[in-house]
């Protein structure tokens, strides 16, 4: 990897972090409505996955989707505008925090019903297989999604049809406020893939370089026509499940402990120790991101509301 590539991973993670920190403030000011699920703490997962993919590989994820949105190259302006429900959002203000996507950037959405996007991901992969393409669908979901039927139907179908899917369970150890071992019969989630004969592994998810390496290996395996692969990536969310989370289910010491493994800090130390860049260069990236996010907030706040005719637009692709 070249120096610029390390710095780009760093920039993306800082941009996700800063965008969300500002979003949390705007939420508290009442400028963002609905639900807001922050990705803070988990940035290395989506950043590593997207860095590992080829342009033909599709991304699809659950409702905690701001990270992927930024990794695939949607701008902070588009993300912030969607959060504020403005016409300049990538979903024209009609999707909100949980529904970001970009066909152009091969990002097939944030999906808000837990687990329901897994069969859809199988279908995306079927589309590539049907046409003889070599794209892989990278489908992310939380540990909580592995207890619902859609997960099992999706995994089973992917193996029966040998679909090119990389299943990625982001195990952040809580489904909302319920710890994995209180909700899942096996707390090592990868064992569920074992039941469907899908090769699998569990990796640490706080080091973006490790995530990227594991994903590259898995994608190469799938691209050779071997069918699906399953990655369980251990991670941790530093904030609540959503903005309205009383956090009665975990001790602050646990959060503190994980924050020592902050994925941005991990990469920061690695870059400096391995002399890929200096502290000053990293500081400059942070300053540039700060400015980019402030401009995005200003842009979003000054963007127009969706026009009234948008209410009835895009219900159908065809005139009815």
């Amino acid at each position: 990897m070249k120096k610029e590539e390390y710095l780009e991973l760093y920039r993306q993670m800082v941009l996700i972090r800063r965008t969300e920190e500002r979003a949390a403030e705007l939420y508290q000011q009442g400028k963002i409505g609905g639900f807001l699920h922050l990705y803070i703490g988990q940035e290395a997962v989506s950043t590593g996955l997207v860095a590992a993919r080829q342009p033909q590989d599709r991304m699809i994820t659950a409702y905690r989707d701001h990270g992927v949105a930024i990794n695939v190259g949607l701008t902070a302006k588009e993300v912030m505008s969607e959060l504020l429900g403005k016409a300049t959002g990538m979903s024209k203000g009609k999707g909100g925090s949980m529904h970001m996507a970009s066909v152009e950037k091969n990002f097939w959405g944030g999906h808000a019903i837990v687990g329901a996007h897994l069969p859809i991901a199988a279908g995306l992969a079927l589309g590539d297989q049907y046409r003889g393409g070599d794209g892989v669908t990278i489908c992310m979901f939380g540990d909580g999604a592995t207890n619902i039927g859609y997960f099992h139907e999706g995994l089973n179908l992917s193996k029966v049809w040998d679909l090119p899917v990389l299943w990625v369970c982001e195990n952040n150890q809580y489904g909302m406020g319920t710890a994995v071992e209180r909700a899942s019969a096996v707390s090592e989630i990868r064992q569920k893939a074992e039941g469907y004969g899908i090769p699998n592994e569990r990796i640490e998810g706080m080091d973006v370089l490790e995530v990227k390496k594991a994903a590259e290996k898995a994608l190469a395996y799938i691209r050779e026509g071997n069918g699906p692969y399953f990655l369980e990536i251990m991670t941790y969310r530093f904030r609540g499940h959503s903005m309205g989370d009383p956090e009665r289910y975990r001790e602050s010491e646990e959060v503190d402990c994980w924050q020592k493994e902050d994925p941005i800090g991990v990469l920061h130390r690695w870059i400096v120790e391995n002399k890929k860049a200096t502290e000053e260069e990293l500081k400059q990236i942070i300053a540039d991101v700060e400015q980019e996010v402030e401009e995005a907030v200003e842009f979003a706040e000054n963007s127009p509301e969706p026009a009234p005719e948008e209410l009835f637009a895009d219900i159908y692709a065809e005139e009815v």
Partner: peptide, 16 residues
């Protein structure tokens, strides 16, 4: 597995 059938159809349709 009806969710797999309809879900997979949705995904395939999204690809064209």
């Amino acid at each position: 597995a009806e969710s797999a059938i309809i879900g997979a159809a949705i995904g395939a349709a999204m690809t064209g």
